[in-house]
Design a protein around this nucleic acid. Sequence first.
DNA 1: GCCAGGGTTTACAACGATGGAAACGACCGG
DNA 2: CCGGTCGTTTCCATCGTTGTAAACCCTGGC
Lengths: 363, 363
Amino acid sequence: MVRVRLQDVAARAGVSVKTVSNVVNGYRHVAPDTRARVQLVLDEMGYRPNLAARNLRAGRTGVIALALPDLDNPYFAELTGSVVRAAEKHGLTVLVDQTEGLRDRELEVVEGFRNHLIDGLVMSPMALRAKDLTGRAAVDIPVVLLGEKFGAGAVDHVAIDNVAAAEAATAHLVALGRTRIAVVGDQPGSRRRSGVAHLRRQGWERALTAAGLDVDERLVAPVPAFDRQHGAAAVAALLDDGARPDALFCFNDTLAIGALRLLADRGIDVPGDVAVIGIDDVAEGRFAVPTLSTVAPDKAGIARTAVAMLAERLDPASEQRPPRDVRAGFELVARESTLGRSASAVSAVRAAAAVPPPRGTAR
Amino acid sequence: MVRVRLQDVAARAGVSVKTVSNVVNGYRHVAPDTRARVQLVLDEMGYRPNLAARNLRAGRTGVIALALPDLDNPYFAELTGSVVRAAEKHGLTVLVDQTEGLRDRELEVVEGFRNHLIDGLVMSPMALRAKDLTGRAAVDIPVVLLGEKFGAGAVDHVAIDNVAAAEAATAHLVALGRTRIAVVGDQPGSRRRSGVAHLRRQGWERALTAAGLDVDERLVAPVPAFDRQHGAAAVAALLDDGARPDALFCFNDTLAIGALRLLADRGIDVPGDVAVIGIDDVAEGRFAVPTLSTVAPDKAGIARTAVAMLAERLDPASEQRPPRDVRAGFELVARESTLGRSASAVSAVRAAAAVPPPRGTAR
DNA sequence: GCCAGGGTTTACAACGATGGAAACGACCGG
DNA sequence: CCGGTCGTTTCCATCGTTGTAAACCCTGGC
């Protein structure tokens, strides 16, 4: 209940503060009986090191921040869980920042308003621009970007190959004989060529072209945000506009869930009338009715890789290598929303891309 | 990129370290021109205070921990989002701990292995016992418990009235004419009388009794954990045992989602054959097919209250009051899984309980 | 011209922990 | 018996910031 300092323990044990410190830190040269006596007093008094002081001294805190748009999005929630678990293995703890995808909030994070409180940053940017990371006020700590990427590789980056993932999803629909494949989730406002929406759209186009199908702009449904609500609204708009899709490729599972819901409202059979596929493989999709086909990124791998890369840069012993750009693996998981009731969660395609664990990765 | 200390700024500006500190902190007695000159240098050099040092000095960190079982559970994910937002308004940031519901991990958190790194703790305990909070090694920081409660009120506690919530859910099913109402989510292993499962079961029994219905043990489906998987499994077991429920009261939405999925597998119509209701009002349920009826706790209110109570205890100016036990409000939200397609998300019942915002609540 | 009184600035000492070097003692070999 | 060595312990300085109190400077009144 009371705070106990090294000094208090030292006084009671009749030794110097440093000796107690040595015992606490398992320093080698401490006489066995001294160690035992000090340890006894430590336990008795319930000593806990003051991490603030330790951090000041050491110049590191053992805390990393995870900045992402929104925990309400199940993909980010699941990813956060994985990051927290991965960080644990490196002795790091995670501080969560919700940026709401707002540029100001993202800038704040990057400009280090948590200065010297965090050792590193894992961030899933939405609105940041390249120069934001290089400006004079910018980060002085290692950063790993997830998903979205921008500018030349100034920092580490982990993501699946979005174009390939989207292509795989679309190709799956094509293979099922669908010809009017709509996309849900375009973000035409965003000029960002590296944006997730842009890349996934690119994959869709590529798959269509490969299959000899036309790219029909009327089959492109834009959304203001990647959530269930807007997924449903976008599909409603699509249908009301008279586009008659026989399949929907949604840019993420959350949009797809919204789509499934709207199709149910309209009495449209999935996959009979319209097949649906998403990306992310959130747990929700595995239990949806019908179960949702999806492209499953290796979330645990992404988290592990991101944290490992950060940990490596935090380690003063390891020489600094240039920023890396890691492609995480993904896997097409076909379920009822494309295969129908006969589906038994077949892994149809396995992504070739592997996650090369960075050197020094724990486990 | 380089670290800049007050000293560096002071040297360049030709003033003392303290004067720079005064400028940074907006101390009143600084000559306007001095202030201007120092400010210029501050901006030029991109000074950022070292929070570790500040914390050491101030004895507070501005960080609180949120300890909960698992972010994969959407209820906790949504709650975390709310807590982070609420904390922000008090100038606090949130560090997330996943305990997996394990006693050891929860103990670790409570015994302050983040000592002096966090100012307070919001925790959703699963396995902790009363004495764990009072033991000698226990917390020396303010704690607010969410949901589960135990022992005499040694710390603050925020939760809905679980018995009343369960009673409302069950009563809703009764009002629809259901007579064989099963519960999904019992945890008979847990002797804890204050446990969530125990309380919700109590509410179920109470509603049945009030309606003159029997409490049939064969309609009680236990689960090892509150997730979709086990929700589905429990309902499967229930059906296979020959219990013929016409309604399911699931102890949370995640179990209910699993239940819906299994009922779909078996071709059982919801709510025609079996009505389903849960507790939590996770976003997922609002888009499920059919949409899930539920008891909606005031999540934002719970988060705000918990953080406000913590903030109040952190404020040395406010006198310390005895631990409080706050009842958060809840609301019955009837949707398709009980009302059928005609449902348009009617709020049938509004909980009487209000959330009395603690004194000093922000906003 | 001196002193009081105000605003402004500075020197100093913490906050609690730890790295490094110095001090201490015991043991050993010459 | 002394110097050297090694293991153990202590002293000192330091991490970057800020509260306290004292020093400083200027103005205005007597």
